[in-house]
Write a protein that binds this DNA or RNA. Structure first.
Lengths: 218, 218
DNA sequence: ACAAATAGAAAGTGACGCTATCGATAGTGT
DNA sequence: ACACTATCGATAGCGTCACTTTCTATTTGT
């Protein structure tokens, strides 16, 4: 299979495929001639995986490269793979920002209340704590009930994520699904949340006419 | 209050504050002299809001500008505000990508099953459908149970979001919380999901020693 | 009086994710 | 055999983004 074929099957320009090859996001093909390299289905699949991570998951090239590297290293445990995957996403959203110690403490308490056994290095702590800081900066203090609802939802999602992993038997495919699921799951819950929010908004604040407050007051 | 004071209180460099003023993300101060402009608490608060949207929420300058514009226009209804807010986020993650019609249909069925009354224009449809496409591209077909779990979680979150809005009385603050909550909520659930995932991972795949497979097999 | 701060505008910076161009080479159709 | 297209690797360039630097003209604080 030539590079043009890979391009055609994935919808990614050949030049971009070459770029991914150069960056090490896709494994090299088999060099046949000086200007001919043979690619196969694994390359097509890999390009699709890269696009899913970057386009839908919002990962940077560097983050995707790191994640894919652990996928390729089949001597790494599932825990390692998950660790790298969840770090890769956090970089894009919120990573280095040193959050308030109080916020971290509050998240730790929340996690404990929900029976989560976690390590302090989990980037989720930093991300969640930074969100609390951001809420505080804008003058809103999330109630315990609010956080509990989010935590319960997170539990439900995480169980579904792990349940999904059990549908695969080959270890390398389990690892791949963990990475893809971790990355794409964020986008999925975000999308569904928009839908549920619209529903709840119309429930809480019905606007029959679709007009503004003056109109409603009639 | 001088610009240096705003900078000090927010931790944002004065040049960046000037940049935000130029871009219209922050309202102009009161011009006192040719090289003197008076700012107040509202400016400080606004800069903090901008930082929360950009840094923690991951919004682009353009998206933040758009969102803030509807916040400032107090003649817009809550539904409008929500609409703009959720569109602004979607741009960053997944917007223009024309998704498979089948995937959209599947999301619509899911939404209906969960009793959500939504409009087809809701960007959540496009985002969720694109995620299904991305899963499919990587060779994983999410089960109905998987999607149901995510949808249930989304319902729980959306109810908490709306519940939070009722804690505020001033209409402009309700709108602000809706925007901030929509943007920051995505990050919050992402962070908590990481924590729950780590817990569930150790439940499903216990790794007593924390070492690799060879070590476990001993 | 004079260093420091401020205003506004314009140009520059560095990261990022490609994209274009190059010369050399090889396969393809006629 | 011959034109033509495709491919290779490498290098350089491009467009966007979020600032940041630099500039001059002022004005403040000491």
């Amino acid at each position: 299979m030539k590079i043009s074929e890979v391009s055609r099957l994935t919808g990614v320009p050949p030049t971009t495929v070459k770029y991914y090859l150069r960056e090490g996001l896709v494994h090299a093909g088999e060099r046949v001639e000086r200007n001919q390299t043979a690619y196969d289905d694994t390359h097509v699949q890999r390009v699709r995986l890269v696009r899913a991570l970057i386009e839908t998951g919002g990962l940077s090239i560097a983050a995707a490269k790191e994640v894919l590297a652990t996928l390729d290293a089949d001597d790494s445990s599932l825990a390692d793979t998950f660790d790298v995957a969840c770090r890769a996403i956090s970089v894009g959203g919120a990573a280095a920002g040193a959050s308030d110690a109080g916020a971290r403490e509050r998240i730790a308490t929340l996690a404990a209340a929900h029976g989560w056994r976690t390590t302090p290095e989990n980037p989720g702590f930093a991300v969640a704590a930074q969100v609390l800081d951001a809420f505080a900066a804008t003058g809103y203090e999330p109630s315990r009930g609010f956080l509990d609802a989010y935590a319960s939802a997170a539990s439900v999602i995480a169980r579904a994520d792990l349940e999904a992993l059990t549908t695969r038997t080959r270890p390398d495919l389990v690892a791949e699904l963990m990475v893809v699921g971790t990355v794409l799951g964020d986008a999925l819950i975000a999308g569904l949340r928009r839908l549920a929010q619209e529903h709840e908004t119309t429930q809480f604040f019905p606007v029959p006419t679709g007009l503004d407050d003056q109109e409603e007051a009639k």
